[in-house]
């Protein structure tokens, strides 16, 4: 088997280098130093230099094709789960409430794992949401994000 350059590995190396650059740039904008001893810039410098060296190491591995073998990837479930999380964040951000958010995340994840009964899963997620909400707000007096539905309870 011939070794080939691993493009994904090169991308990783590049991202590491970019993070190192970002840390260095952020570090150089710190204006206040400690009066005695070591200032706030030392640690970012160490981390940035370390990451840059590791970027090099990762790049060498990528050139040599030394990354472990990877299986093919199914993007659909990933998109579904991340979509579920995004919907959750949006619902909480814009006052949709905890119960709806949970219900959607549950159904999205379950669909991502191959179930095809969206309505059933939405209902299950909904029930979980209601139970958890009640447990938290009534028993622990902990406020979960409130939406139209939670106001009714």
């Amino acid at each position: 088997m011939t070794r080939r350059i691993d493009v994904a590995g090169l991308v990783i190396a590049f991202i590491l280098l970019a993070i190192a650059g970002a840390i260095w740039w952020d570090m150089s904008s710190l204006s206040i130093s400690s009066v005695y001893g070591v200032g706030p810039k030392a640690m970012p410098m160490i981390v940035a230099v370390g990451l840059a060296i590791l970027a090099l190491g990762n790049a060498v591995m990528a050139f040599r094709g030394e990354l472990p073998a990877r299986d093919s990837l199914d993007w659909k479930p990933i998109v579904l789960i991340l979509g579920g999380l995004a919907a959750l964040i949006a619902l909480i951000r814009f006052g949709g409430g905890f119960i709806f958010a949970t219900s959607i995340l549950f159904a999205a994840t379950s669909t991502a794992f191959g179930r095809r009964a969206i309505i059933t899963d939405l209902v299950i997620g909904f029930v979980i949401g209601v139970v958890v909400y009640l447990l938290f707000s009534k028993l622990l007096t902990l406020s979960l994000p409130v939406g139209p539905l939670e106001r009714l309870i």
């Binding site: 789960i81 999380l85 995340l105 549950f106 999205a108 994840t109 899963d121 979980i128 958890v132 902990l142």
Partner: peptide, 17 residues
């Protein structure tokens, strides 16, 4: 499917609370 859906709900719930 339900196990992982439950795990995600659970993980986000902790953060939300």
């Amino acid at each position: 499917p339900w196990l992982y859906a439950g795990i995600l709900v659970f993980a986000t719930m902790g953060t939300i609370a």
